[in-house]
Every structure is written in structure tokens, then in C-alpha cells.
Nucleic acid binder design. Structure first.
Lengths: 164, 164
DNA sequence: TGTGAAAGAAAGTCCAT
DNA sequence: ATGGACTTTCTTTCACA
């Protein structure tokens, strides 16, 4: 599940295509990468079960679903002991509007991506977290817009990238 | 393309399912949301063309593709004039290893998510950007690990969320 | 909008190479 | 590991409620 599978050019092309369109038909995919459907299907399955393809998911428009504000938040804890870290992670996990959370180094311990219907909701949410016992410092960075959102560049591939 | 389509409960369930598995069969999807395949297919198409579903894409494992390091970077510019902003965005867009870039407010102008094969590559990449004429301040936050990666919570839905 | 049936297309399996 | 032929299953269109 997390070994290092050897990826040939065809695999890389498959990954590139699936990153652009995760619902592409196996036939069409096979055509684009230059093989027939059966081996193509096998490769896709292997790529999924080996974990190279983590998931194929729909990306939704937050605004159209009522989340008007998005914010990045840097959080520094008082203590970096394992128990403190895990308690904080549990609190984050319990809050559905904290979409993503990364453990980081540098001048903070966590980076969060957070959505809310409006600024008041967001404020309440963040104040609540600022009040957790182990939280020393919170800095937030409201998102004004997306400048770039590109797929992972596929290593040796001649894959057409998907800029901006 | 960016209007506010009215979404009923069935639409919300569809979104929830597609966020969990973007390659789910229309049949299976229809079954889960309680209608038959034809209207389900129509709804999915509408959701896509209205932009509620932005895309359906494969998410790849960066490590398994040779990107050992990932970093968030906060960037503050000297000038916030439009021309300066756009010049910076163009530079970011030209660098494939800057995967995502958000325009933000707060104590910086941009938030970047950035990958590289190793720390040396990353260092070179960041130093190069630090040298751009209009860049005042760069702070980077190397990612140690992912604590949480959850889908967008679907508003009025009884949808099974996908925690951690 | 929804359903059911029917045509057409795709996925998935087997086997030979 | 691949490709061709087959079977099964799904997608999609259509007529109708």
C-alpha cells in the first residue's frame, strides 16, 4: 500500500490524464496512452491499490454551497509534546469546517484551511479555537481568491500541464 | 456558469457521494440517492455545467512520485499595485512546482503550496523567488505531515462525512 | 421531474501470445 | 505484460406519466 512501485512511461501518462479528468473512460484513456483497454484497466487498478492514486473525487465550489469565506490559519501551541499535538488534532478533526490541517515546522505547529458561511461564523469558530488550553498563538490569512491551482507535475512525462 | 442554482436534497446527496468517490457508477449513485439512473445522470451533468462540481480529478501521492518535500510559503510584496500582483502571479504560474497559490489578506499577500524532490531543490526554488524584484518577505512552513483532509461538509445533508 | 424499456457503449474476463 | 474476442453490465436516449 505504501511501497515504491516502479512506474513506467505509460503509468505516468495515465496519472497525468486521470489528474486532468478522473472520470475519463478506460477506452479513451487506453487510446491516449497507447495501449488497449484491458491492460489499461489493470494498470489503473494497480495504481489505485498501490496508493499512487490516493483517490478520485469531485471538487466542489465552496461559494456555491454557501461557504462565503475561506481562511488559512497558523497555529502555535504552548507545548509540542505528543499528547498536546494529538489533543489538538482531535479538536480539529471534530470541526467539519476545518477542511485540512497540516503538521508543520517553522514559526508555527499547524496550518489549517478553514471555511465558513460568513465572517461572523468564521470569527466565532476561530475564537473558540483560540480559547483551547494549549493554544499560544493564532494568525489567520483570509483568502481573497485563487491565483493558481495546478496538478502535480508528472516527472518524466511529456504531459500537457494544466496551468493557472 | 457561476449563477446560484437551487440545490435540493438529492443534489446535495449526489455531491456528497461524488466527493467521496468521483468514479462511482451512475447506477450505484442513483440507487444511493433514491432515484433512477436517467434523472441522476441529468443532475450530475447540470451540477457540472453549473460549476457546483468544479472537476473530478485523481489525487496523487506526492512522495511516491518523487516529491519528498512540501512547503507552505507566505509571501509579502513591496507593492500591492495590480501590476505588481499580476507580475508575481505570472512568475508563480510559470513554476510547475508551485502547485497552488492563494491571494490573501493579513500579514502577507500570497500563500503558496510548493513541492520539490528534496530540500536542496526546494531551497533553490525559494531563493530564486526571494530574489524577485518585488518580493519583500518570505516565510516558509515545511509540511511534516497531514493531520486532516476532509471533504467540504454538505449543508443540509445527512451525508456520511469522511473524517480524518 | 420522475420511470421503464431498449439500443448502444463500455467494463471486465479469459485466453493466447 | 499485452491484445483480441467474448460476456456482462452500465450509460444514455426516448416515450410517457
Amino acid at each position: 500500500m505504501t511501497e515504491r512501485p516502479p512506474l513506467d512511461d505509460i503509468d505516468l501518462k495515465i496519472l497525468s490524464e486521470l489528474q486532468k479528468d478522473g472520470r475519463i473512460r478506460i477506452n479513451e484513456l487506453a487510446l491516449r496512452v497507447g495501449i488497449t483497454a484491458p491492460p489499461c484497466l489493470r494498470r489503473v487498478r494497480t495504481l489505485r491499490s498501490s496508493g499512487v492514486i490516493q483517490a478520485i473525487r469531485a471538487t466542489l465550489d465552496e461559494r456555491l454551497l454557501g461557504y462565503e469565506v475561506m481562511t488559512f490559519v497558523l497555529i502555535q501551541l504552548e507545548s509540542q509534546r505528543l499528547a498536546a499535538i494529538e489533543a489538538f488534532e482531535a479538536a480539529v478533526t471534530a470541526e467539519p469546517r476545518f477542511l485540512q490541517c497540516w503538521r508543520i515546522s517553522g514559526d508555527a505547529d499547524f496550518m489549517l484551511k478553514c471555511v465558513a458561511p460568513d465572517v461572523n461564523d468564521m470569527r466565532r469558530q476561530l475564537l473558540q479555537f483560540a480559547g483551547l488550553p494549549n493554544v499560544r498563538k493564532i494568525r489567520s490569512f483570509p483568502v481573497l481568491g485563487v491565483s493558481k491551482d495546478a496538478p502535480l507535475p508528472i516527472p518524466g512525462s511529456l504531459a500537457t500541464p494544466n496551468p493557472a
